[in-house]
Design a protein around this nucleic acid. Structure first.
Lengths: 305, 305
DNA sequence: GGGCATCCTGTTAGCGCTAACAGGTTCCGC
DNA sequence: GCGGAACCTGTTAGCGCTAACAGGATGCCC
């Protein structure tokens, strides 16, 4: 910076003013400084600025299992929103959502003096870990139960699940079976609630023996095998709502293997709207979630001002 | 820090020594300082440290289209490797791989004084943009042509493609058709080269009219429709190698729609080993890439010492 | 022309930390 | 007992930047 100042024949403070776009700089001076900056390829040192302003203009993202479609999309939206707001994004991808790992990640971000932290996960462990923390920066939970006063943004799982269920009932099915997500996932619970309340509202019976998966295709496959066996055993199962598209994929494969035709014998609806869903065999009906918007909302909450 | 020093009754420099694990501190003093740190919840200010040491212990990742499976996995490996090495990861996700966007992202990282930059993309634009840059920090290209002296790590696409082709020939097919990726992707070209050289090595004819997709399921679907039409037109197509699994998914859907049976009428092999691949209908044979290792290697290159 | 507001620019201090040096103690060998 | 090594701790300076104030020039009104 002092080099630039020397070359432009001004003080370093004037350079600072030009860099930060302060109003009271003579156009003539401004231009001279800008030329000097360009000539020297000067870039302000963010660390020094952060030291004096106390703001790093950085957001921290702590997340688990980014390899799922949903979180990855949300992260994308978050990054875009952060960039648009002039923030940069530092990420921390945990192996599992233990309280300790969560706390450590948040601590690291605090040491880095991020301006805000976004926590991304739907599991209860994560939510609980978050609840125990009280970082000196804004912490927003995306798709995690916010708890007392913690801001949180999320998709309305229940409405989406009701939509899916209603769609199947509208096709004339007597009732709809559900393959749910893990028990310790808030999202999964929201979808169960939606499914159940829609059945009740429609006066349809709520089937016994709801199956659970863990979001993976292989768990969906197992669920499909189990349901196929029950169908062969005479149970009247004609419509299935799976809690996400990946499980639906496994389920479709299992039903197909067992000689059941989709949608002639059984109708299936998924959740998430994977880009691949239309190309499943047969194409999958699914519910879209606006992950990018979720990321944007998370960002706007966490960046002060 | 001075608060901690005051509470422990030492100078701030001694606190610094304790925090950084310097050897010459009396055990007694060290313990007192550590208690003070715990009591006050003190966390060193990374920005101040960066200012004086010149190292932020941060790596920058610039990437495009993280919504593909491959890049996302690589990023995961990168983040883990970085964390293990005591670095944090700052990410920049570009909308498209234009030279300008690339340059700007790298510039931003330079201003942030990251210790190294990892560029993740397989498109030529990205490679070209990178070539023009000469940042004052290590820049490693992952799965992008490194260019002159630029370090680069990547998966050996050609060998993988030869494997896939050989597998199909081994099944007794006369030759293998290929649905390639975009023309401006190095990865796609590597897979074409591997496919072609394996055919030549086996003395099999290289089919005319190779199709191209853009990695998406819908482009695979179109390719499938085109191939199905050619099959109905009497062309002898019995084995297809698609450049990635997502296109294979679309292709399978199209072939299925046209009444072709897999693998009775046509054999299909993909590339990437998506977690969903085994649950495609029918299950997809595919080639695995070790993305996590790729991330680790990229990290080890870019972090100095 | 004196007084004052307005604009532009420079000077100084300090953000929190580490490196380099300086000073004090202890312990050893001769 | 004295020189010197080994060890521990404190003092000082400075990383690059911005905020706050100070000061000089200019313009305007009475």
């Amino acid at each position: 910076m002092s080099d630039v100042a020397a070359l432009a024949g001004v003080s370093h403070q004037t350079v600072s003013r030009v860099v930060n776009g302060h109003p009271n700089v003579a156009p003539h001076t401004r231009e001279r400084v800008e030329r000097a900056i360009a000539e020297l390829g000067y870039r302000p040192n963010i660390a020094a600025r952060a030291l004096v302003t106390g703001s790093t203009r950085t957001l921290g993202l702590v997340t688990v299992k980014i390899n799922q479609y949903g979180p990855a999309q949300t992260m994308l939206g978050l990054e875009n929103a952060a960039r648009a707001a002039g923030y940069s994004l530092s990420v921390s991808i945990l192996d599992d959502a233990t309280a300790g790992a969560m706390r450590e990640a948040v601590d690291t971000f605090v040491a880095q003096r991020v301006d805000g932290i976004v926590a991304l996960s739907t599991y209860d462990d994560a939510a609980e870990a978050l609840r125990a923390l009280d970082p000196p920066v804004p912490l927003v939970a995306v798709q995690v139960g916010g708890g007392e006063d913690r801001p949180a943004v999320g998709v309305d799982q229940e409405t989406g699940a009701r939509l899916a269920t209603r769609h199947l009932l509208g096709l004339g099915h007597r009732t709809v079976h559900h393959v749910a997500g893990p028990a310790d996932s808030q999202e999964a619970r929201g979808r169960i609630d939606g499914w159940r309340s829609e059945l009740l509202a429609a006066g349809a019976p709520v089937p016994e023996g709801m199956l659970r998966g863990d979001w993976t295709p292989s768990s969906g496959y197992l669920a499909g095998k189990a349901l196929a066996a029950r169908i062969r055993g005479g149970e009247d199962i004609t419509a299935i709502f799976t809690a996400n598209d990946q499980m639906a994929l496994g389920l479709l494969a299992a039903l197909h293997e067992c000689g059941l035709r989709i949608p002639e014998d059984v109708s299936v609806v998924g959740f998430d709207d994977l880009p691949e869903a239309p190309y499943f065999t047969p194409p999958l009906t699914t519910v879209r979630q606006d992950f990018a918007e979720l990321g944007r909302r998370g960002c706007s909450w966490s960046s002060p001002a």
